[in-house]
């Protein structure tokens, strides 16, 4: 035993600062069925899946062609921005001009040709974003214009951009105008800092996704537009 301890101590002295030589081998494995016998995960998911599919599989509209997002324009940009404008201006009246500004990044999935289900709209707009009305001083329009030029285009309605100039469809006679957008963008999302200029804002009391669902149901066949709202940015 004593000898062992002695050898041990000797080893310790000789061992200097021991450490590991680490070597690594890496790979990225595609997740496919590996064929293990027990997979109780499916049964754990099942009840949630059933509850969800009852709601998500409901067909609410039809798309005659694919709706895709893009920069500066896209059919999905136009559909989503126009949906917000049509839906909201029916509910609220204002003296000032109204435009819609959403973000390309927020449209998470195309709407594919064929039946459109509630689930498709969830994929398009998975975020629980609220629709908000933001009142901005007319001077801020130039900041939005600069933002659109910089980003390369975002979904808009009630305004067009020609030769680098953003103009409201209803003209700009008043000192202020309204932008209908999402609370995400109003609160600084995607660095839309111009919303900090706001004079006031109002929640429309509807989620953007629920608005899309309502509009899709109303349209039955989704209204397609490939209009170039942003031209020669």
């Amino acid at each position: 035993m004593k000898q062992l301890i002695l050898i041990g101590l000797l080893l310790c002295v000789l061992a200097c600062q021991p450490h590991y030589q680490i070597s690594a081998h890496s790979e990225s494995i595609p997740v496919v069925q590996a064929g293990m016998p027990d997979n109780h995960i499916d049964s754990l998911i099942k009840p949630y899946q059933i509850e969800l599919s009852q709601e998500m599989d409901e067909v609410i509209a039809y798309a005659l062609q694919d709706f895709t997002k893009g920069r500066p324009n896209g059919s999905l940009n136009n559909w989503s921005a126009s949906a917000v404008r049509t839906h909201q201006t029916k509910q609220f009246e204002t003296k000032e001009p109204v435009m819609v500004l959403l973000n390309v990044g927020g449209l998470r999935n195309p709407i594919n040709k064929g039946d459109v289900t509630v689930g498709d709209i969830y994929k398009l707009m998975p975020f629980d974003n609220d629709v908000v009305w933001v009142k901005l001083p007319s001077g801020t329009l130039a900041k939005i214009q600069a933002y659109l030029a910089e980003s390369g285009g975002e979904p808009i309605a009630g305004a067009t951009m020609n030769n680098g100039k953003l103009e409201l469809d209803e003209g700009q006679l008043s000192e202020s105008f309204w932008v209908i957008t999402s609370d995400y963008l109003m609160n600084g999302g995607d660095r839309m800092d111009f919303f900090q200029d706001r004079i006031e804002f109002r929640y429309a009391d509807i989620l953007l996704r629920d608005l899309f669902i309502e509009v899709a149901k109303e349209q039955e066949t989704l209204v397609y537009s490939d209009e170039e709202r942003i031209k020669d940015k």
Binding site: P18, H19, Q21, I22, S23, A24, H25, S26, I29
Partner: peptide
């Protein structure tokens, strides 16, 4: 996946 091997030095 990364497989690390540790060799005492």
């Amino acid at each position: 996946r990364v497989d690390f091997e540790f060799d005492k030095q």
